[in-house]
């Protein structure tokens, strides 16, 4: 294990060797794009496949989701008229992939906000559920892997090629869009924040890029949507690039104390700073050990 890492702190340029970049690219494609490609509705040869998937998804839905969301995803109203589980007819596959893929659904108990938790379903099951819900109506599909592949930033500086300089531009642009649209709720480094009446904007660090993309697209829970007409796909990618960068960036300044700003800093001042200094003061003023012997003055 390398404790002292000479290059990990570099922000972008020359960060990885060319092979590492390729490996990451391939992995990304395999993990996300590959799966999607297999189920893309546009492909004619997978139509039959898709139908089976929808059927499988419906079975899963009836067991795990229908109690709150209704037999056909029409939603369930409580007696008071508020929603027990909202209608899922027009939420689209992306919403299902996000909610189930981050463990938010199924909920442990009904409540205003579903926390992120252990994922219950397997990837195939999530795909089936998504396919079923997508078949109920309209709504955004699961995003294509290329949309959040930040290693392909596009030619942003217009020099005719795509290189590390473009990545720097992408990250910087993403930072500004992140600060304009996201930090208000999710905090300057994605640590999350409080919302009215006990609600909260969750921590968004360490979340899959795909799920970040889907969250922007679908506006889970009480979050606003940032549809493609609101923030274009290439800018969503920029935001994801920024988040990936601050995830990878070392903490130049020491322990970040949860990234919550001045409150945690104040706690450190009092507990660590003043605590240690008062401890020292007690030591300085404390009586030293005493001997029962007496100094023989005559001899001295």
């Amino acid at each position: 294990m390398r404790l002292l890492n000479r290059s990990a702190g570099r922000l972008s340029r020359h960060r990885r060797g060319p092979i590492a970049g390729l490996v990451v690219l391939l992995l990304g494609l395999l993990l996300t794009g590959g799966l999607y490609a297999a189920f893309a509705p546009a492909q004619a040869d997978t139509d039959q496949n898709n139908e089976e998937l929808v059927k499988e998804g419906r079975e899963l839905f009836l067991v795990g989701c229908a109690f709150c969301h209704g037999q056909n995803g029409e939603g369930v109203l409580t007696q008071g008229g508020s929603q027990y589980g909202p209608a899922l007819t027009d939420v689209g596959a992306a919403a299902v992939d996000f909610q189930v893929g981050t463990g938010r659904m199924p909920m442990a108990q009904p409540g205003s906000q579903a926390p992120r938790k252990e994922v219950v379903y397997t990837e195939e099951e999530i795909a089936a559920l998504s396919a079923y819900v997508a078949s109920l109506g309209t709504g955004p599909a699961i995003p294509d892997g290329g949309l959040y592949d930040t290693d392909n930033p596009g030619d942003l500086n217009g020099d005719g090629k795509q290189d590390e300089e473009d990545k720097v531009l992408l990250v910087a642009r993403g930072g500004q869009i992140f600060l304009a649209n996201c930090t208000a709720c999710h905090n300057f480094e994605g640590s999350g924040g409080a919302m009215p009446r006990g609600g909260y904007a969750p921590k968004i660090r360490g979340v899959d890029s795909k799920h970040i993309y889907e969250a922007m697209l679908t506006g889970p829970q009480t979050m606003d949507t940032f549809s493609d007409g609101n923030i274009p796909p290439e800018d969503k990618k920029a935001v994801i690039a920024y988040l990936e960068t601050i995830d990878k960036t070392p903490s130049y300044s020491g322990l970040t104390l949860g990234g919550l700003g001045p409150v945690s800093e104040g706690i450190i001042v009092w507990l660590v700073g003043i605590g240690a200094l008062v401890g020292f003061a007690v030591w300085i003023a404390a009586h030293t050990t005493r001997s029962s012997k007496k100094k023989d003055e005559a001899a001295a």
Partner: peptide, 16 residues
Amino acid sequence: GPYDPSKVTAGSQPDW
């Protein structure tokens, strides 16, 4: 980030 009157972060607090 730099100050911009149109931006804000959750947990905006003064020093303790």
